[in-house]
Design a protein around this nucleic acid. Sequence first.
RNA 1: GCCGCAUUCGUCUAGUGGACCAGGACGCCGCCCUCUCAAGGCGGAGAUCAGGGGUUCGAACCCCCUAUGCGGCACCA
Length: 487
Amino acid sequence: MSQTTMSDIRVRFAPSPTGAPHIGNIRTALFDYLWARHTGGKFILRIEDTDQAREVENGLELILESLRFLGLDWDEGPDVGGAYGPYRQSERLAIYKEHAERLVAQGAAYYCYCSAERLERMRREQQARGERTQYDYHCRNLSPQERAAHERAGDPKVIRLAVPREGKTTLRDFIHGDLTIANKDVDDQVLLKSDGFPTYHLAVVVDDHLMRISHVMRGDDWVPSFPKHVLLYQAFGWEIPPHGHLPNVLGPDKKKLSKRHGATSVLQFRDEGYLPEALLNLLARLGWSYDDKTEIFSRARLIECFTLDKIERAPATFDRDKLDWLNGYYIRELTDDALAERLFPFFERARRPLDRATLRAFAPLIKERLKKLSDAVAMADFLFGDEVEYDARLLIGKGMDAASARAALRAAQSVLEKHTTFDDEAEIEAELRAASDRLGMKYAQFFGTLRVAVTGKTVSPPLMGSLRVVGRAKTLRRVARAEASLV
RNA sequence: GCCGCAUUCGUCUAGUGGACCAGGACGCCGCCCUCUCAAGGCGGAGAUCAGGGGUUCGAACCCCCUAUGCGGCACCA
């Protein structure tokens, strides 16, 4: 196997199953995916389920569903396996324990027996003094006798990282450049909890190394803890893979995106009627750009264009207006068949089912009017039921009176009656225009009145197409009823 | 409070010392098209490049300070 032709790029997305992934997490996943696909490397899914308390029952499913919806397929993961599994951290506890103990043996970490109460008290006092809350090294300085006493008593213990008190630690970040933090500002972080689970810090470093991860990408909010990871790599004697801290995705208030901002999970967007194509495109452009003018990127194009050096440093605000625009764009790109197919479930869910033939006929009428797939249900309201409800005054348009409205309806009726089907839209339109001309009315007036009579609204999809979908019988009944209401 | 990161139109961004009195896109406004609404086409408003000091013949781009915003400071990730 030639090393120059095979890519050794391995990137991982490592969410914790605490709920439906939100836009920010998924954007990270997208960058991981794009980098893997761009380089012909591997995209790996690893589940960081080391906090039993925060875990959600269907957390894993929500993650898989979100990734699948966007088509971010992974090469190795908890469901598909791979050569470096298991891919669920809760199934790797022995590995973490062994590594943590190795650090204790070499003096890079130590056992700590402090109770939650003591730590709590310590933090309160530090806060009262206006200090940064940080472990006070109590157990780092225990004598051998004291340790032995704790062990004899069977006290619960954790393993903490022995961070050097002096010096500073630097990480070369391919997005930010060199990041440096003084060691005195780094806490003696717990690596292995008393329940035998690792903390994030131990688990990421061990797994990223063992799984041969070549590029680490994660949110900006992890920057303050990179020294712990660097120190761990050094203590283990491992090479540090390139790291990149991605700028956060913000809500309109410039704060980190959260539930407060309304819909933030990918699944919510899916349910609202956003296309994966649009979401993918928008997400890619949050914190990344290709050049000074390209806005539209298909998945293939993204894979082709994506490079790490074009990742932005500053946080980006999630722009719903732009998402709507992109979504409308991708909806218009759909074929009528594809659109009808995607629309179908939205009518089902709204409990206003439409048969596929009707939907297929209706789809092209609303295609360029949709921002979201879910908008279609309201636009189709006049297709349901026999009659439509509206204020009769709407029948009388600008510069019209009841008599002219009635005249328009009567003229329309006589044209429509002659046709056994409404399939020949062009012919019907021509005849209706001629009728309008004979009455000396403006088309906007004539068609406006007919529109209200048939759809119950002053704004609707194109009239001829609408008449066709509503059908001859129902249309004529509605016209007759409108005429009667004008007496 | 301590530590860190960031800072170009409202928003996403282009820009790496002269091609920038700063380009594109979304949104907004106007016009055209038009049976309504959209879509589309055309045009417009919108950024003293956070502020202040330097360096330089020349700075959005380099250095320093300040301000503001955000993030982190758990046996959570």
